[in-house]
Design a protein around this nucleic acid. Structure first.
Lengths: 197, 197
DNA sequence: AGCCTTTCTTAAGATATCTTAATTTTTTTA
DNA sequence: TAAAAAAATTAAGATATCTTAAGAAAGGCT
């Protein structure tokens, strides 16, 4: 398989933001991560399957969502280029995924299998640190999301979402933004109307 | 300073749940973590101060909370024996804490300074893995909390809280449980009344 | 270009939760 | 143990958000 080197650039840059890696490390990392192309609407991870890969978006857009007993969808995460998206619980515990992961645009992900990653931790130990820091940052971001979801009105949450994730807001249907914010599409529509007046 | 060994037992057990450590490792870990006693209501970390320690509750109860511009308190985390409680963002970024951390009962924490912990990672490398896994688990738990806070009614959230954290519910004032659940104390009271009928 | 599907908007009535304020109960302190 | 302080309850009216249903707008496909 011929691998175009340039699709790995965002991944390498993303790692370099947090830790120092040598040229040799970079090659080992590139060897570990495999590209996967997804069509729009294609599902990358099905509920019930075990997630065995860590996944980095190098191009496009993914959402992770779960469907409750009543068939309602809840968006857990939206991600574009340079984001890591997964069902972490499934990945970490090797249990069936609770979430789906789906492409919202034509997308390329770079994914590394758990076993390969464990080996990579041995050959490039700094990657273990990278993932620890990545988790820490994700944890803090998520804690803030929880806090905001409880303390702020939907309108304020929407305004902050727009400020923070303008890139995402561009490519994601509005009803999915609503789902991410924990409100109905109708209510988001009402909020937008009020804001534009 | 004479350190009573037994207060370290919960910490060592907590670590052993996730990783394998030798007797020598245990001694290094014990040397790294310093005990701190707190009176009820005593504040362990003030907003504005930088959090320089990772903290494990070996006895008692802590809450981490933030106060918004209008003076309202929001509880970020409640923890009892065997829980790790901190303002992680402050710890990780060395920026002023956004949260307070306060003892709700007479409490003993074991805390390790960031610098000491970084050294411990070198002498006991498996501790880096321990904290990575710990973060991962915390992340998943928090993600579920976000999702539930958006998709479930306050009543259901309260019922699940009681099921999951009965130990915490015993020792924490009800209005703080309400704050943790993201509702007013009055509303929680109404819910409890309805449940008991 | 036109049809079909998806997404967005609008509005009315229903429900969940909040705000305020007064009262009761429990806990702490002197 | 009495007084003071903190916590919990109750209830009424206000507000935020949801549900339902219908129509309008936008996007995708042949």
């Amino acid at each position: 398989m011929i691998v175009k080197k340039e699709i790995y650039i965002p991944l390498v840059e993303n790692i370099k933001e947090l830790v120092t890696i040598s040229e040799k490390d970079i090659q080992l990392i590139i060897d570990a991560f495999k590209p996967k192309e997804l069509a729009k609407k294609e599902i990358l991870l099905f509920k019930g399957d075990t997630s065995n890969h860590m996944r980095f978006i190098t191009e496009g857009c993914l959402r992770s969502y779960y469907i409750n007993e009543e068939g309602q969808e809840y968006i857990v995460q939206l991600g574009i280029k340079n984001w890591w998206v997964n069902d972490l619980f499934s990945y970490l515990t090797k249990t069936p995924a609770q979430h789906f992961v789906q492409a919202l645009q034509p997308t390329i992900v770079l994914q590394v299998h758990r076993d390969t990653l464990e080996n990579l931790f041995k050959t490039v130990p700094v990657m273990e640190r990278f993932f620890r820091i990545k988790m820490q940052n994700a944890y803090v971001a998520n804690q803030n999301r929880t806090l905001k979801s409880m303390s702020e009105t939907a309108e304020l949450r929407y305004l902050n979402f727009m400020k923070k994730y303008r890139d995402i807001e561009q490519v994601v249907p509005q009803y999915m933004v609503a789902s991410y914010l924990g409100i109905t599409p109708e209510h988001l529509s009402t909020i937008r109307k009020r804001l534009h007046q």
